[in-house]
Computed example of a mutant assay.
Amino acid sequence: MTELQTYAIAIIGALIAGGINTLAGNGSAITLTILTEVLGLPPNVANGTNRIGIFTQCAATSWVFHKNGRLNIARHKKYIIPIFIGAVAGGLLAINVSNEQFRAVFKFMMLFMLVAVLVRPKRWLRETDLEFRPKWYIYIPLLFALGFYGGFIQMGMGVFFLIIMVLGMRMNIIESNALKGFVIGLYTLLVIGLFHYQGLIDWKLGFIMAVGQTIGGFLTARFATKYKGADKVAYYVLIIVLIAAIAKLFLF
């Protein structure tokens, strides 16, 4: 395989991952596989390099969602702060500790998430409940843990985020995806700095992957804001992503 063919596979795979990340999550399962198995990066360098495309994708999708009135940062700032603080802590751990042991239990977490998504599906298709006020002593530790996970490993972060925001905070799935992109982009910029400081980023390969992820995220965000049935599509994509991830983790 020529270098050009390798990079073409990387960009196409990243484009698909960008779309999946925007509507559901776990697109990093694709990009991390490409970075390690196709491009040959060590796992810790792949983890850092992957964050470049995640940031550019999130920046593009956040702009589209904001432009179309689906991203309200002021309304949800109380959710953003604990996630951001947790992500910083997780990022600091990620540059010093391997996450391979955590991956061993990841597949069982995916099973739990699939059950959570399939039970009472109408909860995933409702509008944001503006009257709901979660207890601070519940959502702050929960969102801190969510951010810690995202800063540490990232893979599957989008799925966790949607489950917590849709089921726990009673947000619409499209608005949850919009907030997800903004929050992940915000803390990823800082995490990139942490990985770069430790020399754990391949900037050339990171930017190549970022091209595909950004295009995929941008186009998918436009679809999500223009198509009336986007919430149903996002829900079904989430189910497909979870089933595919579980199949890969248990069978291959």
Rank of each mutant, 00 (worst) to 15 (best):
I243F: 12
M155P: 04
T22K: 01
D202H: 14
A234C: 10
L93E: 10
V191N: 15
A234Y: 01
L143M: 15
A74S: 10
V166E: 01
G53H: 02
Q154F: 08
T225G: 00
G168V: 05
F182T: 09
T128S: 01
V183W: 02
T6N: 09
G53T: 04
H76E: 03
R120L: 12
T128E: 00
I184M: 12
P134Y: 06
F65N: 00
F182V: 06
I11F: 07
F250V: 01
Q154W: 08
A94W: 06
A247F: 13
K180V: 08
L242F: 11
I34N: 07
M157E: 11
L15Q: 04
K107T: 07
A29K: 05
L35Q: 15
F112I: 15
T61S: 15
L142C: 13
A221V: 00
V191P: 04
M1C: 07
R222I: 02
D231S: 14
L189I: 15
A230K: 01
M165G: 07
I20Q: 03
G199H: 03
A116T: 12
T188G: 12
G147T: 08
Y187F: 15
F161K: 02
I83N: 07
L71G: 00
L71S: 00
F65S: 00
Q198K: 15
L205Q: 11
K204W: 09
V241N: 08
V159R: 05
Y79E: 11
F108V: 11
A17P: 10
H66P: 01
G206N: 10
T31D: 02
G156I: 02
Q154V: 11
F207Y: 06
A210P: 13
T33R: 14
A145W: 03
Y149I: 05
T61N: 04
W124Q: 06
F55Y: 13
L93P: 09
R126G: 02
G216H: 11
F102I: 14
N47Q: 13
M110D: 04
D231F: 04
E175K: 02
H196S: 14
G229L: 04
Q5D: 08
A87K: 07
W136K: 15
F207E: 05
G147P: 07
Y197S: 13
V183G: 03
